[in-house]
Design a protein around this nucleic acid. Structure first.
Lengths: 138, 138
DNA sequence: GTCATTGCAAATGCTTTGCAGTGCC
DNA sequence: GGCACTGCAAAGCATTTGCAATGAC
């Protein structure tokens, strides 16, 4: 368990029961959830929480840089709470599950056996993010 | 221009005017289009082509392994026709534009200046694809 | 007390689906 | 000529938005 809650409080994020529950659900997980899964787990602790509120809270956390939005397949986005720890992702093409991994060598060498968690790894994929000339201009 | 059309014919893909136009629109492009952009360009050549048909054709091409579905942001999927050439992606966080790049060194070294195409690159991201134990079982 | 946050429900964007008609092989 | 492909319109998810009521600071 990490100190996500404390960081949020320290940064002056107005704390409500709903937001606390969303942050608690995410906190430190190494298997990332979709907004709907976060909502389902939040409901277990706070039955009246709405989907819109979960989306609001997740959007805030992303804007604060405490959580990273991961959209690696065409389905629902997933939310990665380990924004401050450098890591890479292991994605299941079958069910969309995403796990954090921490390999040491170059990605092109493939993922070490010890970091595969039982997955059958078939490809490594690299994406560079930035702004294109047009978007950088405005 | 590549030989996508010929490969498709050779593999026995039933050719229709609509499918040909979709394949022609994609063929060899290094900036990848969304389904809607493919539809727009297809309409320019074949006004009565429907969106559903474009989705069908794209889905087929992906199933055949001739085109790769790229879903790097939470928006519309984009279609990469260069499935047979190893390459990486350069993504604009502003507008979602995706371009192919062909860097030589390790991704962790960053993207060489000659491969940036005017982008301001801020991050490199690695994803390993495969099947999780549960999905591999079935 | 004020103003941000919540919940609801309706709207949006992208994609898929059902089904009758069309046309490729 | 059979059966796969097409077009249309309607349905389906994931997500966003508008707005009145609520509650944190």
């Amino acid at each position: 368990m990490s100190d996500l809650l404390e960081r949020l409080r320290a940064r002056g994020w107005r704390m409500t029961a709903q937001r606390r529950v969303v942050a608690e659900v995410l906190d430190g997980d190494h298997v990332h959830l979709t907004a709907d899964e976060v909502h389902a787990r939040a409901v277990a602790r706070l039955p009246e929480i709405s989907r819109a509120t979960v989306y609001n809270a997740l959007g805030d956390l992303v804007a604060l840089g405490e959580v990273v939005e991961v959209a690696t397949d065409g389905r629902a986005k997933r939310y990665d709470p380990n924004a401050h720890r450098p890591h890479q992702h292991l994605l299941c093409s079958g069910c969309g599950l995403i796990r954090d991994v921490h390999p040491l060598g170059s990605p092109l060498d493939g993922l070490p056996e010890t970091e595969r968690f039982g997955f059958t790894v078939s490809a490594a994929e690299v994406t560079y993010r930035g702004l294109c000339p047009d978007c950088a201009r405005s």
